[in-house]
Every structure is written in structure tokens, then in C-alpha cells.
Simulated scan of single mutants.
Amino acid sequence: MTRPFTTLISARELRDLLAGTTPTVVVDCSFDLADPDDGEFAWSAVHLAGSFYLHLDRDLSGSKTGLNGRHPLPGRAAFAATLGRLGITPATQVVALDRQGGPYASRLWWMLRWMGHEAVAVLDGGLDAWRAAGGAVDAQVPVAKPAAPYPERAPLAATTSADALLAQLGRVRLVDARAGERFRGEVEPLDKVAGHIPGALHRFFKDNLGRDGRFKPAEQLRAEYEALLGRDAAAQTVHQCGSGVTACHNLLAMEHAGLSGSRLYAGSWSEWSADPTRPIAVG
């Protein structure tokens, strides 16, 4: 059996994979936080031939209460049904992509690992890399071969809660993936309160990418994260962002660099800042 792709896959590797016999499902997760319809509209106009679309709000998030963040995780049973609808089983190689440098694809990557699915990778460079490599695109809506809801399996990715994080502040390495001006509290275009969780370190998710829009080499990512966190710190690290999406980009980068074991605070700043009793920091 071919070894599964578990972090990144190149356009050339994906072309070879699709030409082979490995059951493969490609999912486009393109999205725009400022225009939630934009990603689906772009997919409907042109997409990697045969790729399905999953929407961040409808498919990769659960119900919002006003206190659990802008993109809370869906229930595992609901997400299992979504995966089954696309024909994804434990034997399926899943490839996620987007057109924004990988944050939304990384969310799907992380969520599949959260469901216990190992064979999931992000297309490095997204749709642009696919087209540059001569990959086929079209506007046809593919027909899925539905399967049963994805079976219950032990998670391969860990989470933490706001209460657990609050109890660990000062003893956990916390990494914020938002842009610097949001981290410092200079602007806040999406949430009601500006700032960051006290003690958080800053690693803008786009710093994982080179000028070509692809992820930096694994060795370089490893060196950069070890410089930020120290060596052997992955298991003590929690990642967060605004709503638990771009933090998955940092989790993917660390996993690709061989730094496994970090956790996601899925509620992130949008959940944390919704409770005025929780501490905040600026600067």
C-alpha cells in the first residue's frame, strides 16, 4: 500500500496520486472572512477538476452561541456525516486546498486528524500551484459516492478549553497566529475586543510560507519554531488565532517540521474575549 500523505502534497504528487488507484477525495475550502460567499462562488466558477467544496461556516463549524467563538468546532457526529456525504472513509486519501495560502485547507486537515484520520494533506501552493503544474480545472459539480458517516476513532489531534487554558496561563507555550496588528491590539476588524491572551507568543501564519506561496522547507520551519518555543516544546504548546482557523496553519507547519503534539484552542480569541472576566493583554 502506498504510504499516505499526512502533511503537505505537491501539485506533481497530487497529479500522480489521482492517476493511480488510491481512493482520493479532493476538497476545496476557499473562503474569505470578509465575504463568506466568495470562496464558494470562486469554486463554482473554476476549480481543480473533481474537487468538492466545503464551506467554513456551514460545514467546518458548529452552532454559535455568542460565547463559543466565531467558528466553534461542529459536533463529531455532524462532521462524521459531512465526511460520509463526500464518500470519505478511513481508507480515503484526502487532499485539502484553498486559494488563500492554506489556512482554510489547514482547518480541514486538522479536523480530519481530530476525527482520527491520518491520510490527509494540504495541497502546497493551492489552486495556483495546481494550475501552474498543468493540472486540470473545470466548473463541473462532481458527483460524490456517499459512504456511511465516518466511524468513531481515537483523535490524532488534541484540543484544549478556555477554562483549561486559563488554569495553565504562564505554564503553557501559547502561540497566536493572527496578524501582528491584531495580536498587539492596534486594530480588531472581526471581534468586539482587541488584544491577545496574556503570555501568548506571536507567529503570523503567513510566516510559514515562502515568497512563492508554498510552505517553507521542513528544516527551516523546524528551526524557526524551535527558536520561538525552544526545543522539545511541542507537547507543551497550544495554538490559537481569532477563531481557531489560521492556528491550524501553524499546527500543520509544526507537524510538517516533525514537531508533533501541539494542541488547538479552537475557541481562540473570539471565545476568550467574549467573557469579560478573562484577562487580556495589548502591545
Rank of each mutant, 00 (worst) to 15 (best):
M1I: 08
P4R: 03
P4I: 12
P4C: 08
T6P: 02
T6R: 12
T7A: 13
I9T: 01
S10T: 10
S10H: 05
S10Y: 08
A11G: 02
R12C: 00
D16W: 04
L18M: 14
A19E: 15
G20H: 06
T22D: 14
P23Q: 14
T24M: 09
V25E: 04
S30W: 02
F31I: 11
A34E: 15
D35N: 15
P36C: 10
F41P: 01
A42V: 11
A42G: 04
V46S: 14
V46G: 10
A49G: 05
A49Y: 05
A49S: 11
G50W: 13
F52Q: 02
Y53Q: 11
Y53M: 09
L54P: 05
L54K: 03
H55P: 04
S61Y: 01
S61G: 13
G62L: 08
S63G: 07
S63R: 11
T65K: 12
G66I: 08
H71P: 03
L73Y: 08
A80P: 03
A81G: 01
T82Q: 15
L83W: 04
L86N: 04
G87P: 05
I88T: 00
A91C: 00
T92A: 09
V94W: 05
Q100Y: 02
G101M: 07
G102D: 02
P103K: 14
A105Q: 07
W110D: 00
M111R: 09
L112N: 07
L112W: 10
R113E: 01
M115C: 09
M115S: 05
G116D: 11
L123R: 04
L123D: 07
D124E: 10
G126K: 04
L127H: 00
D128T: 11
W130T: 00
A132H: 13
G134M: 06
V137S: 08
D138Q: 09
D138M: 11
Q140K: 10
V141M: 03
K145H: 12
P146T: 09
A147I: 00
A148D: 05
P149T: 13
P151V: 09
L156H: 00
A158H: 13
T159Y: 06
T160K: 11
L165P: 01
L166A: 15
A167F: 10
Q168G: 09
L169V: 13
G170P: 10
G170L: 15
V172L: 11
R173D: 15
R182D: 02
F183R: 02
F183T: 03
R184L: 15
R184V: 03
V187S: 10
L190E: 10
K192I: 12
V193E: 13
P198R: 14
P198S: 08
G199I: 13
L201F: 02
N208Y: 03
R211E: 15
D212V: 11
G213F: 12
G213V: 12
R214P: 02
F215R: 06
P217K: 12
Y225D: 07
Y225V: 11
L228Y: 07
D232W: 05
A233N: 00
A235N: 12
Q236T: 07
T237W: 01
V238D: 04
Q240N: 10
C241T: 10
G242D: 01
V245W: 02
A247G: 06
N250L: 09
H256C: 07
A257V: 12
L259R: 01
L259P: 09
G261Q: 06
S262L: 12
R263V: 04
L264C: 01
L264T: 02
L264W: 05
S268L: 04
E271W: 08
P276F: 12
P279K: 03
A281L: 04
G283C: 14
G283L: 14
